[in-house]
Design a binder for these strands. Sequence first.
DNA 1: AACCTTATGGTTAATTTGACTACAAGTATA
DNA 2: TATACTTGTAGTCAAATTAACCATAAGGTT
Lengths: 239, 239
Amino acid sequence: MPNEKNDTKSMSLVEGSAIDDISIDCVILGFNNGTLEVLLVQHGEGDSKGEWGLPGGWIKKEESIDNAANRLLEELTGLDNVFLEQLKVFGDPKRVSFRRVLTIGYYALIKREDDKLKASLVLTDAKWFKIKNIPDLIFDHNEIINYSLKHLRNRVRQAPIGFNLLPEKFTLLQLMKLYEEILDIEMDKSNFRRKILHMKLLKPLDEKQQDVSHRAAKLYQFDQEIYDLLTQKGFNFEF
Amino acid sequence: MPNEKNDTKSMSLVEGSAIDDISIDCVILGFNNGTLEVLLVQHGEGDSKGEWGLPGGWIKKEESIDNAANRLLEELTGLDNVFLEQLKVFGDPKRVSFRRVLTIGYYALIKREDDKLKASLVLTDAKWFKIKNIPDLIFDHNEIINYSLKHLRNRVRQAPIGFNLLPEKFTLLQLMKLYEEILDIEMDKSNFRRKILHMKLLKPLDEKQQDVSHRAAKLYQFDQEIYDLLTQKGFNFEF
DNA sequence: AACCTTATGGTTAATTTGACTACAAGTATA
DNA sequence: TATACTTGTAGTCAAATTAACCATAAGGTT
């Protein structure tokens, strides 16, 4: 809140911030078949009818913006308890024509194989697009996606959030492939394995992969409790 | 921008996002005498008159939010071309009473010894507060400051932005003390020196400290051009 | 001259990294 | 059944990096 000393006392919307409206847009990311994908929806009204864009919506009177983002995400995907973080506000005056609309960007990391998700998506016209093959979107939505990817690449090195894109139980190679895809680099199987196991962050399970046409790999699980314990002791996730 | 298919067609402010107003608040950080400080101002009107808070203001119709933040910063400090980045939006419904006001948080890193700054500040009632000694502020401004510090601690490890808090010419020990203060850790002089010099990021000058009561240290300068060249070649700043 | 304080340059062992090699455990195919 | 093929898992080794030191230099102060 500004120091109003030098300003008009109690500002109405029009005189004050000169913003017509503020929305929320969410970059929903999933990992499928070794590629990162984003969930887009078709715009329903106005000039841009039929064009693709990020799913989004409006903030209600009594809810926090984080709650609003969570609600919108659940309305579309049927999922709750999802990894969801705010990116920032996008506020170019020309991002929407005729009106001054800001949007708060969020990004979510979700598990593609969730049944609730699948059930929810058949009801809508939402569609997954490969990250490397995204069409021209409405407004500044391409910019928002690009920003979210840049942000993700930083974040994934500093905090164990990649797991949110994988099934509950995963192999080390799946995890590595995820990192390779997000960071757009190649890694060494053996060295990756050594590094991640050395962190003692993953819970090894007594299970193996099923139905693969080669030697089945051991399954691991990310355990938030283990992570919290480690960080309390001063452990710092870094990749 | 939301997909409006399931929503009211053209939303007015009240029916749409239900947000009364949106402001900008800026965490201005400086480094003085080995301690990190933040610049606060006294609130002028209303219930919270006399209480301290972050400097802030409103966005104008035709300017981008980054421009708005820069303008507000210059109005207060007289400085332009300052390191200034958006943090995120703070949007708790109860952060301001009676009205629903969001605020976009920014943080700036500035050089305390700048003459323009000094001249500007004598005209206002702004005051520097040590980071470890900040009073209760209006609204959620303590939260915004805490967030900015957490953010800074991450950012300063990944990008060479610390220099923005130091004079143009500085010694390696000054730089180390800055890192120690920001990250709240102790470092080894010798190892720090080796690491930072090894990056070949700093331009060694033919000058030394003046007026110190001990052996004068060599002065260095951060050179954006060198940095850009290095990053082009794939160099990645990490601390 | 003796004594501070900080600057600067090294040493060394421990740890981490990157590039590889080798072999194990399965499936698929001949 | 034998062989090839694919992926999993373990280990080696040299190079690079880090952490913890030590030593000396270069000024000022007493």
